[in-house]
Design a protein around this nucleic acid. Structure first.
Length: 106
DNA sequence: AAGGTGACAGGGT
DNA sequence: TACCCTGCCACCT
């Protein structure tokens, strides 16, 4: 178990309900690796039910990771259950929904 | 050992 | 807004 994975999971778990963030924002906050590393880390999160990976999208607000969930629609389903509107695999009002780890609003 | 791949991002056109 | 190219870095052939 790489410590890097735990770091990414820890940040992901702090994403407020109903908000989303990006791979790049997490990489930027950790100041480790790159956005690709975060994508890789979340890929490993499959099976870790306590990690809300559905709240992490790419810079355009697209649900680029939906195909890695148990079902292709689960990611969108989870987001909508939190009040996040998703259309054509894209988060609506993305700039407003965006949350950066450094904000730490909770 | 070397090259390809990927849940990405930023800048140019 | 969209498409293309380049940088990124660990993992998997």
């Amino acid at each position: 178990m790489d410590n890097y994975l735990e770091l990414v999971y820890a940040v992901t778990r702090r994403i407020p309900r109903g908000r989303v963030t990006t791979y790049g924002a997490i990489a930027d906050y950790l100041a480790l690796g790159s956005a690709r590393m975060v994508g890789w880390a979340l890929h490993q999160s499959i099976g870790a039910a306590d990690v809300p990976a559905h709240r992490v999208v790419n810079r355009k607000g697209e649900l680029s990771g939906r195909l890695h969930f148990p079902t292709p629609t689960m990611m969108q389903q989870l987001l909508e259950s939190e009040g996040v509107v998703v259309v054509e695999n894209r988060v609506q009002d993305f700039p407003q929904r965006f949350w950066h780890p450094a904000e730490d609003e909770e």
